[in-house]
Design a protein around this nucleic acid. Structure first.
Lengths: 210, 210
DNA sequence: CAAAATTAATCAAGCGATTGATTAAACAGT
DNA sequence: ACTGTTTAATCAATCGCTTGATTAATTTTG
């Protein structure tokens, strides 16, 4: 066997992440996960205590990746609000498309607001991103770059909502775009730049004082 | 007993609709639904055959309401594309906010693409609305009212996505808007007009040739 | 009375979790 | 180095419970 020790836990987490994202928390049985991971069922409890513990562990592993991704942009003094906004959109689209499996899992279990501790952690991650955008919008307004009447909260809802609409329901999105959005190549080379370009144009038209 | 016969089935459907929307299909047990509806568990199978049959029945009951709501607007000759678009946004926001419970249920089970027959029915409903918007956008472009470069598909994703972001994850939305979005009065008197106004301004800025 | 509606009791299947036994590796004392 | 002890990892078996569904008996209705 050429696999190392700690890789097994990571392997279980990889499988669990995919299974949870595929069928949801409730429909994902511990037997299903352990079976696909090729480990004994009892190992899940041995490593993670419980099914919910495993679910939490899947998220914990990703939190840090998310937390640090956007925050640096907002503090860069060399850019104005529009530059920051566009850069945030770029890295946001890049990030969630790479992690679309995790992103779907997050959204799905998020708005199903049970499971207290998890809901708390998740809204932490989400609100972190939201507030970063919020600060940039406020800066843009106070520097006279954006309209006074800008509805900041709903503009944020548009950025996240538009992205979610594409990534969260691939079946509908594929019909709408007349392409399989699960096709990684199409997603990377066509859809990603298209979403970025669209969101920038949309927000330019809405925000900028002409 | 002062209740009539057919009311009992409708009552079960009402309860099932709410429970399914609250906790999702998998976590909603037949005992939970029958218990909250105040009927014997076996009545669900007696009336609807199975849990999935009940789930389908919940949707069937709503399909016609959805199908006829927006379609009339698109065929009105007395309006230009912008008028139609704004009217569609109005009735769309009105409709899904009233049926937000059903809307959440629909979206949740939709993007969880299993359960073949249901997925087919749902994407039918959704694509019907989507295509109505699409026709209006195309009319606006061909009459020279909207930009040639308009990304129709993503603009549609913005309309539906922005709405979904608010209604589907009330927990996050409440934090973002600093209000409880489950508060019916706030939703009706403040948020609904605000979303309508925002979406119109946003699309006006993006679509119209200046 | 006959048919429809409703009930309590029960079914097999699947769930998450736990158990006690087994293996293998790491460590200890002499 | 050899050996007895400890430790972590893994497994099959099984626990108690809930699930969706069905049965047979009972009540209600026409």
């Amino acid at each position: 066997m050429e696999k190392e020790k700690t890789d097994k836990k990571d392997h279980i987490l990889d499988v669990a992440e995919r299974v949870f994202a595929d069928v949801g928390y409730d429909a994902a049985s511990t037997r299903m996960i352990s079976g696909e991971a090729g480990v004994n069922m009892a190992m899940l409890n041995y490593y993670f205590g419980s099914k919910e513990g495993l679910f939490l562990a899947v998220f914990e592993r990703k939190i840090e990746h998310f937390r640090t991704l956007i925050n640096n942009i907002g503090n860069d003094e060399s850019m104005n609000a529009l530059d920051k906004l566009e850069k945030c959109i770029d890295s946001f689209i890049d990030k969630v498309v790479i992690n679309s499996c995790f992103s779907r899992l997050m959204n799905r279990e998020m708005w199903l607001g049970r499971r207290g501790e998890l809901t708390y952690k998740l809204s932490d991650i989400i609100m972190n991103n939201v507030n970063e955008f919020k600060r940039i919008f406020e800066e843009g307004i106070s520097t006279g770059l954006f309209h006074q009447g800008t509805d900041i909260e709903l503009a944020i809802a548009t950025i996240f909502g538009t992205k979610n609409y594409i990534t969260n329901s691939p079946h509908v999105a594929s019909k709408l775009l007349k392409h399989d959005v699960n096709d990684a190549e199409y997603m990377e080379n066509e859809l990603k730049p298209r979403i970025k370009k669209y969101l920038k144009q949309l927000l330019n038209a809405y925000l900028l004082i002409k």
